[in-house]
Each structure stands twice: as C-alpha cells, then as structure tokens.
C-alpha cells in the first residue's frame, strides 16, 4: 500500500509540473491559437537565470528578480516573433518558429552555461514525510502552487469577464476588436504571464532534479499531449489529462512483470501510445463535444 501511495505522490508532483506548462499552453492557445513549444525552453532559461542570480549573490531575492526579468524578456520576444504569424493565420508555421526559437534558446544556454548539469539545491534534497510517504520540499511547493494556479485559472477563464475576453479573442477576434478590446495588449500580457508560469515550473523542476539545457523539451511535449488529450478548449480536460498521462505510465512501469523490464526511460514512449489511443478514439480530446462541420 505504501508503495502504491508513493507512486501516487510522485505522479502528483510530476503531474502538477505538467499542469503548470499545460495551463501556459492553454492560455496562449486561447488568445492566439498558437502551440508555443518554446515555453519549455523558456522555463529552462528562466531556471538558469535563477541559478545565475543565486550563484551571484547567494540571495533568493536577487535570483527571483533575475528570473522574473528573464521571463518577461523572453515572453516579449516570443510575442514579437509570433504576432506576425498570428495575424497572417499561419498557425502551424508559428509552431515551427516556436520550435526553432526553443532549440536556439537551448543552444544559447548550452554555449553560455555549458551542457553540464547544474544543481540549484546542493546535496540531499530536504524531504517531508506523511506517514511512510515522502515528498521533497520542492515537490510540496509544486503541488501547493499548482493547485492554487489550476483553481484560479479555472475560475478566471470560465467565470470572469476577463476569461470570456480571453476565449473570445481566438474565436472571433474581429468582433472583440469592434467592442474596443485591445487584443495586442492582452496577447502580450498573456505571453509574459505564460513565460512566468513556465519559469516557475522550470525553477521547481530544476530544484527537484538537475538543470540541463534540454530539461524543458520533454516536459513541454508531455504538456502538449496533455492539452490535446484533455481537449484544447476546456481547462478541466487539461487538468485531468495532465495527471492521467503521468499516472498510467507510472503504474505500467512500476507494476509490470519484471521480465518486461520496463524502466523510467519508457515513460515518454508510453505517454505517446496513450495519447495515440485516446486521440484516435476522441480526436478533439476527452472533454470535447461532438460538432458537425457545416
């Protein structure tokens, strides 16, 4: 039973990290329909900024300020790179541009900081025990921040006028513009906000594991898969799918017969297969509604 609960606990932490990124992706997709793959690399770069600030002054305050500035600058750069493609409705080309931006950022980080793994927290990670279940301190922070973020995102997007404006921008931008809403400003703030959220998860992931230039790419792909499996138009689906696509492979890996030798490195493969199966049956996601093409 303890083993089962520990797997659940580990999945909760990892699932929340994916949820962070999936929410960022959801927000950007809501205002611009663009799949912003570079958010993973942005999160990693912000984590490096945090690491640099920490090494500079041994002060978390300076590190947070540097991380915030890095996230804001990268959010603005993303916005300016992608805005032209949004206006020309080249959504899939925007995905390619975002991918190129991500790889460029990773290479730049590798050149500046080298490819060697860095540790934000040196030595053994502090842990908290609930009975026989252990959580690392960064893991606890991840869950707490993640739960609050998911709750507020759901409330803001679905229950407030700001959320309605956000959703209406991608559905009918001309109508929104005619109502006097400054869409460019909203998209800019969303890009910056999404970059900050990606930066937070980048820092939390780097605290839990080692910091490498390519850390964010796998996470962002899993977050994308969660977004599409859950249904890109419904935040509830995104929240559910973020945990589902982590839980199922975790149980497959840990409860499979020893002869199959499924290790953690199979995780991405299992996530892909699960996504394949779900999207083949429900192409628009778990929470999608059936629509007819007129």
């Amino acid at each position: 039973m303890d083993f089962f609960l520990q797997i659940l606990a580990n999945s909760l932490v990892l699932g929340t990290q994916i949820l962070f990124l999936a929410i960022s992706l959801y927000l950007i997709k809501a205002v611009s329909k663009i799949e912003h793959v570079a958010l993973g690399a942005i999160g990693t770069t912000v984590a490096y900024g945090f690491y640099y600030g920490l090494n500079l002054n041994q002060s978390y305050t300076i590190a947070v300020i540097i991380a915030l500035i890095t996230a804001t600058i990268l959010g603005l750069i993303s916005f300016h790179l992608l805005e032209k493609l949004y206006k020309n409705k080249d959504i899939l080309l925007a995905l390619l541009l975002s991918l190129a931006f991500a790889l460029g950022l990773e290479s730049l980080v590798a050149i500046v900081f080298s490819s060697q793994a860095k540790n934000i927290i040196e030595g053994v990670l502090p842990t908290i025990s609930f009975g026989n279940i252990q959580f690392t301190l960064p893991g606890i922070y991840t869950i707490l921040i993640g739960v609050v973020l998911a709750f507020f995102t759901y409330i803001i997007v679905n229950k407030t006028p700001y959320g309605r404006v956000l959703r209406s921008i991608s559905e009918n931008s001309s109508l929104v513009a005619s109502l006097g809403v400054n869409q460019v400003k909203i998209r800019k703030y969303v890009y910056i906000g999404a970059s900050i959220i990606a930066g937070i998860v980048g820092i939390l992931v780097a605290m839990n594991a080692s910091l490498t230039p390519t850390l964010g790419f796998n996470y962002i792909m899993i977050a994308f898969i969660a977004l599409f499996v859950g249904g890109a138009k419904d935040i509830r689906g995104t929240i559910l799918a973020s945990y589902l696509i982590i839980l199922i492979p975790e149980f497959l890996i840990n409860y499979s017969p020893a002869s199959l030798n499924f290790t953690n490195s199979y995780r991405m493969f299992f996530i892909f297969i699960i996504a394949l199966l779900i999207l083949s049956y429900k192409p628009n996601g778990i929470f999608s509604k059936y629509t007819r093409n007129t």
């Binding site: 799949e35 793959v37 959504i91 899939l92 995905l95 991918l99 790419f217 796998n218 792909m221 994308f224 898969i225 599409f228 890109a232 490195s265 199979y266 995780r267 991405m268 493969f269 996530i271 892909f272 297969i273 996504a275 394949l276 999207l279 192409p283």
Partner: peptide, 16 residues
C-alpha cells in the same frame, strides 16, 4: 494540430 504535435512527440517517443 494533434497530428502535428503527435508527429513531433513521436521523435521523443522513438528516442525513448
């Protein structure tokens, strides 16, 4: 969109 993301994800899945 899903096909694009899945085909991109297949690169990581195959590597894994």
């Amino acid at each position: 969109d899903s096909f694009t993301i899945l085909s991109l994800g297949s690169i990581l899945a195959f590597e894994a």
